[in-house]
């Protein structure tokens, strides 16, 4: 169970991690500045297992992988959003940052709520409000990547054609 940190629609990659910090690829160093523009207290106060809750089009903008890496580096359990920008979605899957799409849960969760997420079933439980939601199912090949812990790990053991099942 973790605390929810809520963000607005169209959270862009510069707001997740400003370009001036992208000279490093170290997840922990990036995490020191994650969301610093929009929620300056986040890098210091976030706890392992907390949940990032976004709106529509989360992660729009640059192709920088630094954005999901910075979020992963902050040791949050996952991101829940109404929808994702396409490159951010691919990048998160590839680097093994768990992301769930669930508009009703996003509408229900307010900052500071205690939220439990079961990543394998996609069930999201808002402990503070006593509500529960089912996230949208992910495509099969995305699950294959996620189960391997990211595309790099997948390719260590498999040929890329095996992604297609």
């Amino acid at each position: 169970m973790g605390k929810a940190w809520t963000f607005e629609d169209n959270m862009n990659t510069d707001e997740i991690i400003p370009g001036r910090y992208n000279i490093t690829i170290d997840p922990l160093e990036l995490a020191e500045h994650v969301f610093c523009e929009v929620k300056p207290e986040f890098p210091e106060q976030v706890q392992p297992g907390d949940i990032v809750v976004g709106g529509q089009n989360f992660g729009c903008g640059s192709s920088r992988e630094h954005a999901p890496i910075a979020i992963k580096g902050s040791q949050v359990k996952c991101v829940i959003a109404k929808s994702y920008a396409r490159i951010f979605f691919r990048n998160s899957v590839n680097i093994g940052l768990p992301i769930l799409e669930c508009p009703p849960a996003v509408d229900d969760i307010t900052e500071g709520d205690l939220v439990e997420v079961n990543l394998s079933s996609g069930v999201i439980t808002n402990q503070t409000k006593g509500t529960s939601y089912q996230a949208n199912p992910l495509p099969d090949f995305v699950i294959r990547i996620a189960e391997a812990g990211g595309i790099v790990n997948f390719l260590k053991e498999h040929d890329i054609q095996e992604l297609m099942g």
């Binding site: 192709s63 920088r64 490159i87 691919r90 990048n91 590839n94 390719l155 890329i160």
Partner: peptide, 10 residues
């Protein structure tokens, strides 16, 4: 089209 770095490495 734009992708992330990891996919370029892939």
């Amino acid at each position: 089209t734009g992708l992330g770095s990891t996919e370029i490495g892939v």
